[in-house]
C-alpha cells in the first residue's frame, strides 16, 4: 500500500498551495462574514433565520469547487509535468490517482470543518447535528472530486475540463437560485428537488436540523446515488485515459 503513503506528501503539497487556500478558505470566510453581518437576525418565511440558510448554502456551495484541487493534482502528476517520473516509479498509477482523490476529498472536508466551526462559533449558525453536517460535507466533497475527475478524463484539453468544473460549480449555484430566483419551471424544480447536489445537501441538513431525520436520510441517499453514478462514469472514462 505504498501508494496510500503518498497521501501525506500530497497533503503537504496541498497545504503549501496558498492560492487555493485563499480561494477555498479565505474567500468563503470573508463572504460569510459580510453576509452574516448584513443579514443579521432577520427571520425568513419558514421561521429559520435567513442567515442560517444563506451561510449553510454558501459553505456547501464552496464544496462544489473543492474538486478543482484533485483535478489539478491529477493533471499535473499523471498527464503533464510529472507524468514520466511517476510512470517510472514502481507503483500503480491508478491507485496513486485514487490516493490523490482521497487526499483532495480529505482536504476539502477539512476546509468544510473549519468553515462550519467558524460559522458556529462566531455567528451562532444552526447546523443541526454536527456529525450529520460532516457526513453531508463528506458526500459533497467526494461528489465534487469525482465529477471533476470525470471531466479531466473525458476531455482531451485540460483547460476545457477546468472550465467544465467551473460550469458545474457555478451552474449548480445558479440553478439553486442563489444569485437570483429561478423561473418557476417544472424541469428546473424537478432538477433542484432530485438532482442538484447543492439543494440535496442543503435539504438534508435542513431536514435534520428541523427534526425530520428520515427525510434527511432520503436526501443523503439521493446524493449517494449521484456519487455512485459519477463513480461509475469515473471508472469508465478513467480506464481509457489513465496512463
Amino acid at each position: 500500500m505504498k501508494e496510500l503513503a503518498t497521501i501525506r506528501f500530497i497533503g503537504i503539497r496541498m497545504s503549501r498551495d496558498f492560492i487555493t487556500m485563499i480561494l477555498l478558505l479565505g474567500v468563503p470566510i470573508i463572504l460569510i462574514t459580510v453576509f452574516s453581518i448584513i443579514l443579521g437576525e432577520v427571520e425568513g418565511l419558514s421561521g429559520t433565520p435567513i442567515r442560517d440558510e444563506t451561510v449553510v448554502l454558501l459553505v456547501l456551495g464552496f464544496q462544489l469547487f473543492g474538486g478543482a484541487i484533485t483535478m489539478n493534482y491529477v493533471h499535473q502528476d499523471l498527464f503533464a509535468e510529472r507524468k514520466n517520473r511517476l510512470l517510472s516509479l514502481p507503483m500503480n498509477t491508478t491507485l496513486y490517482g485514487f490516493s490523490i482523490m482521497l487526499a483532495g476529498i480529505i482536504y476539502s472536508i477539512l476546509l468544510g470543518i473549519i468553515l462550519i466551526t467558524y460559522t458556529t462559533m462566531v455567528f451562532d449558525v444552526n447546523w443541526g447535528n454536527f456529525i450529520w453536517a460532516l457526513l453531508v460535507i463528506t458526500l459533497m466533497s467526494s461528489l465534487s472530486s469525482i465529477v471533476c475527475l470525470v471531466f479531466t478524463f473525458s476531455v482531451k484539453n485540460f483547460k476545457i475540463a477546468e472550465r467544465l468544473s467551473e460550469v458545474y460549480g457555478v451552474g449548480m449555484i445558479l440553478l439553486a437560485g442563489l444569485f437570483f430566483p429561478m423561473p418557476d419551471n417544472a424541469l428546473i424544480n424537478m432538477f433542484n428537488d432530485y438532482v442538484n447536489p447543492l439543494m440535496l445537501a442543503y435539504s438534508s441538513i435542513d431536514q435534520v436540523r428541523s427534526g425530520g431525520l428520515s427525510d434527511g436520510w432520503l436526501y443523503a441517499a439521493l446524493l449517494s446515488v449521484l456519487i455512485l453514478i459519477a463513480f461509475g462514469l469515473l471508472l469508465l472514462t478513467g480506464r481509457r485515459r489513465m496512463p
Binding site: L23, V27, I37, I38
Partner: peptide, 28 residues
C-alpha cells in the same frame, strides 16, 4: 486571474452591486 476573481466578488458585494449599500452596517 484566480485571486482577482475573489476580489471581484468582494468588490461587487461591498460596492453595492449584489446588495443595496443601505442594507449594510454603517461601517461598511
Amino acid at each position: 486571474f484566480l485571486i482577482f476573481m475573489a476580489v471581484i466578488v468582494l468588490m461587487a458585494l461591498l460596492g453595492g452591486i449584489l446588495f443595496p449599500v443601505e442594507m449594510m452596517p454603517v461601517v461598511f
